[in-house]
Design a protein around this nucleic acid. Structure first.
Length: 422
DNA sequence: TCTGGGGTCCTAGGACCC
DNA sequence: TCTGGGGTCCTAGGACCC
């Protein structure tokens, strides 16, 4: 039995946590550069604001309805997420952190004297009391069904935030009421295709012959089919798998033209990516740099170039040398750039790095230096120690006009409670 | 004019080996 | 008309997730 715990309107809930005046008001959180809406309060959803909708389309509505606007504050959301996950780990020895706002819990073998539903309510109440974030809980025999259950927990008021699909009858009803496009694993492409064939609900899909599903929608489609029919195909992964690639990319706050400015951005991205690489104990065998010009395709310049390292590395210094080479290859004078990114590829565990007879780099020295940088930055603040190439005019930095304070991670941002004197 | 960022898996087809 | 059998690796494209 699996429980899916899903935070309600997570980014908005994080903003509300330290700013209760936002309760009952429409609130939205923007993507990077304040470009799109990526989180909405229920009040904002009711106004018809869509997920991913561009901000410029909504300017009038924001004004008229007095919508509270926020730039993404991922430092805050990440910290609150860790707290939620830490509370959840008290309720099951097997927890899979599936995303920043969701986790699967294995409930098998847990003593639940009042049953799974009461247990789920206790989970939700505890998260609310300890962290202050509202969550919905769905319980079912497979992850895909648990997803549907949590959906219902959120959508249907009488469930009060908890939905347990315990019996085959309850599961069948839930499937019949679940539009095919809402099924985990059926996306934007497959849903219209299935609708054309008269498959409009999860139930319809689960009734298709298995061989046909396999033939038309490959093994992934078949797994979804089996999960809907109660057969476990996806188990819980407690340890996050080591990444096969690490990407850091950003849209610039304004168009950037000079090589030095683009390089400064690439240096920052490489540094962040390399730090993520070291955190998982890996080294990368190749660096890819891509840039995108201003405007829309076609006609907008796009370039990407990969550089292979002679020996896989996790050193920011070394990776940046190759990133620079790649950038030199794709950079075109006179072009105005709106976005750039760095992708670390051919990732291997650090201890499995294939050495080279002709290697001239003192890897031990690099490694010790990176360790010092990482530990200092962890204690004192990210990028306090950095490469010179990362500092400069910072003209590429994103627009973030509606950023909230880092209430929980920065001393200067901690809320001050004032005592009013009479 | 203005539209995010970060991932994974699967398949088909081409190129190659014996 | 008939034309072996078995494999690997790589890439592009398509699909999905949050």
């Amino acid at each position: 039995m699996y429980a899916l715990v899903d935070c309600n309107n997570f980014f908005v809930s994080c903003e509300r946590l330290f700013n209760p005046s936002l309760n009952d008001r429409p609130v939205v959180v923007f993507s990077g550069n304040d470009g799109c809406v990526i989180a909405r309060s229920n009040e904002a959803k009711a106004l018809g604001i869509g997920m991913g909708q561009p901000a410029f389309e909504l300017r009038e509505l924001f004004e008229r309805e007095k919508v509270a606007l926020f730039s993404s504050n991922h430092i805050l959301y990440g910290d609150i997420s860790r707290r939620v996950m830490s509370v959840l780990s008290q309720f099951s020895p097997e927890v899979e952190v599936y995303s920043i706002d969701e986790a699967f819990l294995v409930l098998d073998g847990i003593t639940m004297p009042y049953g799974a539903e009461v247990y789920a309510r206790t989970i939700a109440e505890t998260v609310m009391r300890c962290v202050g974030i509202p969550v919905s809980v769905g319980i079912a025999p497979t992850k895909t069904l648990a997803k549907i259950a949590s959906h219902r927990a959120k959508k249907i008021a009488r469930y009060g935030g908890v939905c347990h699909l315990a019996t085959p009858d309850q599961q069948a009803i839930a499937l019949m009421e679940c539009p095919i496009g809402d099924v985990w694993g059926i996306g934007r492409r497959l849903a219209p295709k299935l609708l054309e064939q008269g498959v409009s609900t999860a139930w319809d899909f689960s009734r298709l012959p298995r061989e046909r599903v396999r033939r038309l929608y490959t093994v992934e489609g078949e797994r979804t089919w089996r999960e809907l029919n109660g057969e476990v195909c996806y188990s819980v992964d407690e340890l996050p798998a080591s990444r096969l690639s690490v990407t850091v990319s950003r849209t610039f706050g304004q168009a950037v033209t000079t090589f030095d400015d683009v390089y400064e951005a690439v240096a920052n991205f490489t540094s962040t990516a390399a730090q993520r690489l070291r955190r998982q104990g890996s080294a990368a065998g190749a660096v890819m740099v891509f840039v995108k010009g201003r405007g829309c395709s076609p006609g907008c310049y796009m370039g990407a170039l990969q550089c292979t390292l002679p020996v896989a590395s996790d050193s920011t210094i070394e990776l940046l040398q190759y990133a620079r080479k790649a950038l030199v290859g794709v950079y075109r004078r006179g072009e105005a750039y709106k976005k750039a990114g760095v992708i670390l590829q051919h990732i291997v565990p650090r201890e499995h790095v294939q050495l080279s007879l002709f290697d001239t780099v003192d890897r031990e020295k690099h490694h010790r230096l990176m360790q010092v940088m990482d530990s200092v930055n962890k204690q004192v603040g990210s990028k306090v120690l950095r490469l010179g190439a990362e500092s400069g005019r910072q003209v590429w930095q994103a627009q973030r006009s509606h950023l909230s304070p880092c209430y929980t991670t920065s001393f200067s941002d901690i809320l001050v409670v004032k005592a009013h004197e009479k």
